[in-house]
Structures are given as structure tokens and as C-alpha cells.
């Protein structure tokens, strides 16, 4: 555990540091540069929405936050700790797989395609990480899973396999699965894009409830209504850069940049 503690050292933890801080984050796949210098801050307890056309790099940036993607340049901090690296003196050291896994325990992620484990029931999906990663007892994890399912409105579906649930139900189980690790930050990667329109509302309701409880959330979304109602901050990305940012109501109703205006005129 000691080297885990060290991993977050050296970054002078201030009491009021933001939940996520990005400075000049770059990411390329081979010769293609997807992120061209992202600077932003997500405050504690904030619902932070990322919008933009497909290919703008918003999902890639989200995946950088829990180190599913490795950044090529810049710095990225979560809760004051560098993501995926450790600063020792003036040198940056890559974290071991084990240390990266340790960082991810506190960051929940919800995927566009749910990615539930199909060979496990809903309850087993939710229990898996608390039991395997945190070493909880099965009985304790099962009880917690039942409570979480209740919270996302699926108290009676615990014994179902993912293939026996609708898309909206699967996504709510996926949210419960992420919450089971008691994260301090939740990442949502277009959580409603793969859903039938009439199922979107249930998922958004769960997210809204989560926001009201004070969870810090970074949400990549095309749901402008959700962004406007629930969001505390919003960033419009295009071509790997932040084009415009501000309060969702301001950006969505009164965009300053031409590219933002063009994008919003198509989706609103």
C-alpha cells in the first residue's frame, strides 16, 4: 500500500484542488492527433458536460481521465494525483499496472455500449469489483448490490442476465456496477446513445438523482436537455480542442463561436 500512497505524492495536495484538472493534454494515434491541447477544470460536486461532433475527441479525453488511453503530452490530475504517472524529482515515471488499477478504483465509468459482463447476472455484475478488488465479503457485496439495484429502480431484476434486460435496464445496472466501488468521480461516455428513445428517460433520471446527491460527474452526451437542466459546466469540443466553455445555459442558448452555433443548430 505504501507505494500506492506515494503515487499521489509530489503534487502538493491542496485542500481545494479540483476533481479533474487538464493542462495541455495531447493524444495521438500514430500520426493522427486526436487531442490537441485540452485545458479544463472539473470542480468537486459538479456535473461537467462535454459536447461536440463525433470525432471531436470528447470520448478520447474522457478515456484519458481513467487512463484507458495514455496521453502523449500535457498533464492530467484527478483529485490532485497525476493520472498514470508519478513525478519523482524532475522525471515522470510510468505507474505499474497495479498502481493504475488502484487509481481506477475511485473513478467509475459508464460506457455507451454498457459492457456488462454477459456471463454474470445483474447482481453478480455489481458484486464482482467490490469482492475481487476491494476484498469485500460476498454477503456484504450482495446486500450492497441489492440496495444499488433498488436505487436505480431495478430491485426485482437482480437475477437476470444482461441479455434478459432492455438496453435502458442494462445501462442502469452498469451505473449501479460503477457505484458499487463508491467512486468519487463518475465518467459517462454517451450513456444514452445506444438506447431506444423511450428508454433514455429512465437512465437520465438515475443520472439526475446522482447529480442531486452531489456526485462529481463528467458526461459526454448528445442530450442537450439534460446538459441544460442538470449540467453545472459545459465544454464544446471540435477537432481536438475546446472551442467554447461556460455554463450550459449560456453556451447552449447564446453560443459565441461560429462552430458552436453551427453544431447546435443541427442538434437542437
Amino acid at each position: 500500500m505504501t507505494d500506492m500512497a506515494k503515487a499521489s505524492e509530489g503534487t502538493a495536495p491542496a485542500a481545494d484542488h479540483p476533481m479533474v484538472r487538464a493542462e495541455g493534454v495531447h493524444k495521438s494515434y500514430g500520426p493522427v492527433e486526436v487531442l490537441k491541447g485540452i485545458d479544463l477544470e472539473v470542480k468537486r460536486g459538479e456535473v461537467f458536460c462535454l459536447i461536440g461532433p463525433s470525432g471531436s475527441g470528447k470520448s478520447t479525453f474522457l478515456r484519458c481521465i481513467n487512463h484507458l488511453e495514455k496521453i502523449n503530452a500535457g498533464r492530467l490530475w484527478v483529485d490532485g494525483g497525476l493520472v498514470g504517472y508519478q513525478q519523482r524529482g524532475d522525471k515522470l515515471h510510468e505507474l505499474k499496472d497495479r498502481e493504475v488499477a488502484f487509481q481506477r478504483r475511485d473513478i467509475g465509468m459508464v460506457f455507451q455500449r454498457f459492457n456488462l459482463f454477459p456471463h454474470m447476472t445483474a447482481v453478480e455484475n455489481i458484486m464482482e469489483a467490490p469482492v475481487r478488488v476491494k476484498g469485500r465479503s460476498k454477503a456484504e457485496a450482495r446486500e450492497q448490490a441489492a440496495q444499488l439495484l433498488e436505487r436505480v429502480g431495478l430491485g426485482d431484476k437482480g437475477g437476470n442476465y444482461p441479455s434478459q434486460l432492455s438496453g435502458g435496464q442494462q445501462q442502469r445496472v452498469a451505473i449501479a456496477r460503477a457505484l458499487a466501488m463508491e467512486p468519487k468521480l463518475m465518467l459517462f461516455d454517451e450513456p444514452t446513445s445506444a438506447l431506444d428513445p423511450e428508454l433514455v428517460g429512465d437512465v437520465l433520471d438515475v443520472m439526475r438523482q446522482l447529480a442531486e446527491e452531489g456526485m462529481t460527474m463528467v458526461v459526454v452526451t448528445h442530450e442537450m436537455g439534460f446538459a441544460r437542466e442538470v449540467g453545472d459546466a459545459l465544454v464544446f469540443m471540435d477537432g481536438g480542442v475546446v472551442v467554447e466553455s461556460g455554463h450550459p445555459r449560456d453556451v447552449l442558448t447564446n453560443p459565441q463561436h461560429d462552430r458552436t452555433k453551427a453544431f447546435l443548430s443541427k442538434v437542437l
Binding site: R98, E128, A129, R177
Partner: peptide, 15 residues
């Protein structure tokens, strides 16, 4: 996506 979901939950490569 299965590997990603497991990694995002903090599971190790072996797990």
C-alpha cells in the same frame, strides 16, 4: 469493451 469495463472497475490484468 469487456476488458475496458473490468479495467475501469480497478480489476488487475490477471483478474
Amino acid at each position: 469493451g469487456q476488458t475496458e469495463a473490468a479495467h475501469a472497475l480497478g480489476m488487475s490484468r490477471f483478474q
